[in-house]
Amino acid sequence: MAVLPVTSLLAAAFAVALVTLSFPISLRRLKVGDMVGDSADDALRRRIRAQGNFIEYVPLGLMTLALAEAQAAPLWLVLTIATMLVLGRALHVVGMLTASGPVRGFGMIFTYLALLCAAGGLIVNVAL
């Protein structure tokens, strides 16, 4: 059975990050009295989208990272993918919550690069 230490640690960190992103949504919902939907409140909408985007990209990022690690990809590649994914997700959240388009954009670029590196590594490994 594969242990996948990098993916395991990253999954644990992302679980904590998801709770960290979710809790302020609950608090803001209570404050504005809008318990369902995306609300007209800009702060609540930004928090919801930051969390939603996190949920949209992290699972596939973790799956491709786990597959690369399980297929014995070089450690430098696994760490590169993990670093880009963490950096991408962190920058995106900061950009969303501070309304900084450039920071958010760099977050997406790093996320895309992580996914593309993982996909490339998997394709090369399977093809060889």
Results as ranks from 00 to 15, higher is better:
Leu79Lys: 08
Val58Ile: 14
Gly107Leu: 11
Arg104Gly: 06
Ala72Ile: 02
Ser100Tyr: 03
Leu60Ala: 11
His92Pro: 05
Asp34Met: 05
Leu97Trp: 07
Leu79Glu: 06
Met35His: 11
Ala82Leu: 10
Ser39Pro: 01
Gly88Cys: 12
Val78Asn: 02
Ala50Asn: 04
Leu62Glu: 03
Ile55Ala: 14
Ser39Tyr: 01
Gly107Asn: 07
Glu69Cys: 12
Gly37Val: 11
Ala66Val: 04
Tyr57Lys: 02
Ala90Gln: 07
Ala73Asp: 01
Glu69Gly: 08
Val94Leu: 15
Arg46Val: 02
Gly61Phe: 07
Trp76Gln: 12
Ala70Asp: 08
Val86Phe: 11
Gln51Phe: 08
Asn53Lys: 03
Arg89Met: 12
Val36Tyr: 08
Glu69Gln: 10
Thr83Asp: 00
Val32Pro: 06
Leu97Lys: 04
Ile48Glu: 08
Gly105Val: 03
Glu56Asn: 05
Arg49Asn: 06
Asp42Val: 15
Arg104Tyr: 05
Tyr57Leu: 08
Ala66Arg: 02
Arg104Pro: 05
Leu60Asn: 00
Ala43Thr: 14
Arg104Ala: 06
Met96Trp: 07
Ala90Arg: 01
Ala66Phe: 04
Gly107Ala: 06
Val32Phe: 05
Leu91Trp: 12
Ala66Thr: 04
Asp34Ser: 12
Ala50Leu: 07
Arg46Ala: 14
Asp38Val: 14
Ala68Val: 15
Pro59Leu: 06
Val103Ser: 04
Asp34Arg: 10
Phe54Asn: 09
Met96Thr: 00
Leu85Arg: 07
Val93Thr: 15
Leu75Ile: 14
Val94Glu: 01
Ile109His: 01
Leu87Cys: 13
Val94Trp: 11
Met63Ala: 14
Leu77Arg: 05
Gln71Ile: 00
Met63Asn: 03
Met35Cys: 00
Ala70Gln: 11
Met35Lys: 01
Gly95Pro: 05
Leu91Val: 03
Ile55Val: 14
Ser39Met: 02
Leu79Cys: 12
Arg46Pro: 02
Pro74Gln: 14
Leu85Lys: 07
Arg89Ala: 09
Gly37Leu: 09
Val32Ile: 15
Ala40Ile: 05
Met35Asp: 05
Ile81Asp: 02
Val58Gly: 02
Gln71Ser: 13
Ile81Gln: 06
Phe54Thr: 11
Ala90Glu: 01
Met96Phe: 15
Val86Gln: 01
Met96His: 06
Gly33Ser: 10
Asn53Gly: 07
Gln71Phe: 13
Ala40Pro: 00
Ile48Gly: 05
Ala82Lys: 11
Leu65Val: 03
Ser100Leu: 07
Asn53Met: 06
Trp76Thr: 14
Val58Glu: 00
Gln51Leu: 09
Met63Gln: 09
Ala40Arg: 14
Ile48Lys: 11
Met63Arg: 06
Leu44Glu: 02
Thr64Asn: 06
Thr98Met: 04
Leu85Pro: 05
Gln71Asp: 08
Val86Asn: 01
Arg46Asn: 13
Ile81Ser: 02
Gly105Ile: 04
Asp42Met: 08
Leu85Phe: 11
Asp34Asn: 13
Ala72Trp: 09
Met96Asn: 03
Val86Arg: 00
Leu44Ala: 09
